[in-house]
Amino acid sequence: MPHKTNPLVLFIKESWLLLVSAFIFGLLLAGINAAWSPKVAANKELKIQDAIVALIPATANTQIAVDNQPIKLSDKDSAKTSIFKALDKNNKLIGFAFTASGAGYADRIDLMIAVDPDFKKFLGYKVIFSNETAGFGSKIKKPFYRDQYIGAPAKKLTLKKLGNAKKIDDEIIAISGATISSTAVIDIFNKYVDKVKELMTQKGLLQ
């Protein structure tokens, strides 16, 4: 062994490569992030916009009315929601959309739910995030189930195993083989509908 070296010198001698490359990688990441993050943010916005347009086709423009506001769903359950205004090309209000989430069959389900400007009727929902079992639970994304919500009265809904799925009312017919996912969606609706209405009245969005 040679004579004792200063520990700091030893440290730098051993790890200079690590430090230098950590610095270079950091710069690289910062550069790429700066270049691409506007695009990532734009994508997120576009996704929300797309979801709203899919629900309210005449939408030309969307406005965020309430951003990630905590709401109480029940005594012990609280969540966050964002509410968007959908405007047509003459800037007339044609509906609202709000985000809602709940527990699904396997994982969380995030929905975008649309209602008409007076909060009288639902205009449908779109699944923003779900991990439901392919082929069974993922049918909550399919028209058979989704269409039943379009035009349904904006109040508490009930789930039925059998019935006429074509008739639009407060009775929703479950997907056979995916009762739990069907229940999950309707639960999310029922948990949010009154509370969101309350919040919107509070914020002066509804008369």
């Binding site: 790429i32 691409w36 695009k39 990532v40 994508n43 576009l46 996704k47």
Partner: peptide, 8 residues
């Protein structure tokens, strides 16, 4: 990041 930006 690339996927998030170009293939969301």
């Amino acid at each position: 990041l690339y996927l998030k930006a170009f293939l969301p």
